[in-house]
Amino acid sequence: MKSKMALIFGYNDYALEIAKNIADKYGSVVIYSLHSEQDSLKNKSDFEIRGLDLSDNWDGINENFDFENSIAFCVLEDSAENIFLTISLRSLFSDLHIIALSNNKETANKLQMAGANRVIPLVQTTAEMIAEMMEKPIVKEVFHKILFESGELKITQVKINASNEYIGKEISQLDWNDKYGVIPLSMVHEDMRSEFIYSSKIKHHVIQEGDLFVIVGYENCIQEFEKSIGSRYDVNWCNWSR
């Protein structure tokens, strides 16, 4: 049987951090290393290390894992190798979700061109965090809580159910924050682009069944909201534009 796997390419601190954080979501996490023999010896983690050859055609992998639900992280330290790896993976497995790490903007563009679904621009993200720490410390703290800590405050996406009182109403008439304690932030269009809730474009949009909203709220409020208005809609993030 094909299994849902997380493949991490490159053995380094980034790989280990990623492996640690995603281990509970995936059945197996495998780290591929360019120098597997040396790295296996110094490996103190529980993760399996396999050899990787950039000129290989990965016939072995092809047979036994489920692309649709698997994910690949490209974190090789050398940018050129990382781009080559991404393009190799994309050419071989068109359905695989690839997340790549980049050190600068230029590499980020190239990685995207090479077929990565999502690029984590390491330097930019770190800089963003530091700048936010300096200029908007409270925003940083609240975001950090919502994103990275298992706090009660959640941000999620909800699809409007067939029958409820809001269908036919305009977005400007929504009273979800009083009634359910959740704040709608944006509406998501069919092409997966989100539009801010107060933008003049969608202010008068009439709510229909199947509309997607991004809402913020405490976990119990969101659950309450889901019962009467809509269901949590897990979008396949790789289709998420940008």
Partner: peptide, 18 residues
């Protein structure tokens, strides 16, 4: 940070993107 972002990208892509 990369570890945490990876976790978010897999678990709660919406939150992360917004």
């Amino acid at each position: 940070l990369v570890g945490m972002i990876s976790k978010e990208l897999i678990g709660r892509p919406v939150a992360f993107e917004v």
